[in-house]
Design a protein around this nucleic acid. Structure first.
Lengths: 137, 137
DNA sequence: CTCCATACTCTCTTTTTGGTAAGTATAAAT
DNA sequence: ATTTATACTTACCAAAAAGAGAGTATGGAG
């Protein structure tokens, strides 16, 4: 099923709980993405950024991914994109209130990750050790 | 760079802020995943589930993805996997404390998505309308 | 003897994702 | 006349993700 047909389904069907859940899940899937979250963090720290600034601040992202991610965020109403008709081009991005709300909501997950990364690392090495013992190829 | 070599780097290098950030980002990337989040929700609601129950509760997931996701969650210490040596096989999954913590942290994002899906839909239709006007192919 | 149930695993194929590199537009600076 | 700067877009290719479907192991029921 395409994204568009999914959205149409969701618009035309009676809004059952199940349909609503699907929509919410789709949004979670869209938003729970590494680059999206990193960009939200950057734009939370520095309110207003040009394309080049974001590119430098977001280590490892390619131009293509940066453009794609920013477009998707704009489409979903998380950022605004302001184009200044000058040469060379100048485009500014900033979070909307919606984007800021997501930033705050996701903050809990960052905190969790920062508070628990040692436990996760330990779980991983325990798991690896167990696998090695049971399967000594 | 492989996952393993990344982890080794992170273990051997002095824990600079940047290295820590990378680790936290990797965890966010791992964990901010549709199926992982859905399974955490299911296991939050019903503490203890067998493979087949999860498969039925998690609409649309394939066996392969379910196995993969559960293994990754087990590896990261989010769930426990208990195998009963009976025929036919019986395996039970439940959240660890770590998994429960993530469940709580991510809860904010679910709430945000449920509270704001209408705004997001509106943003999307506005964006689509704008694109149609500017580019009437 | 055959079938069933369960929780996988394996193989094959398709789809999606993401990277690289080149191209575009244009005014100002050299 | 050539270069520079910026924010892209496009085309092409490789890698990764994900789905479909068959296979596996085994004790008990019929």
């Amino acid at each position: 099923m395409t994204e568009t047909s999914l959205r149409q389904d969701l618009q035309n069907l009676p809004r059952t709980d199940a349909a609503l859940d699907r929509l919410v899940e789709e949004i979670i899937g869209r938003v729970a993405d590494k680059w999206t979250m990193l960009l939200i963090e950057i734009l939370t720290e520095q309110e207003c950024c040009r394309f080049g600034e974001l590119s430098r601040a977001c280590t490892g992202i390619s131009q293509k991914m940066l453009t794609q991610t920013l477009r998707a965020m704009e489409r979903d109403g998380l950022v605004t994109r302001t184009v200044y008709p000058v040469v060379p081009p100048k485009v500014e991005y900033r979070l909307t209130d919606l984007g800021l709300g997501l930033s705050k909501a996701f903050c809990g997950v960052w905190i969790w990750a920062e508070a628990n990364f040692e436990k996760i690392e330990k779980a991983r090495s325990d798991y690896a050790a167990k696998a090695t013992v049971q399967d000594p190829s």
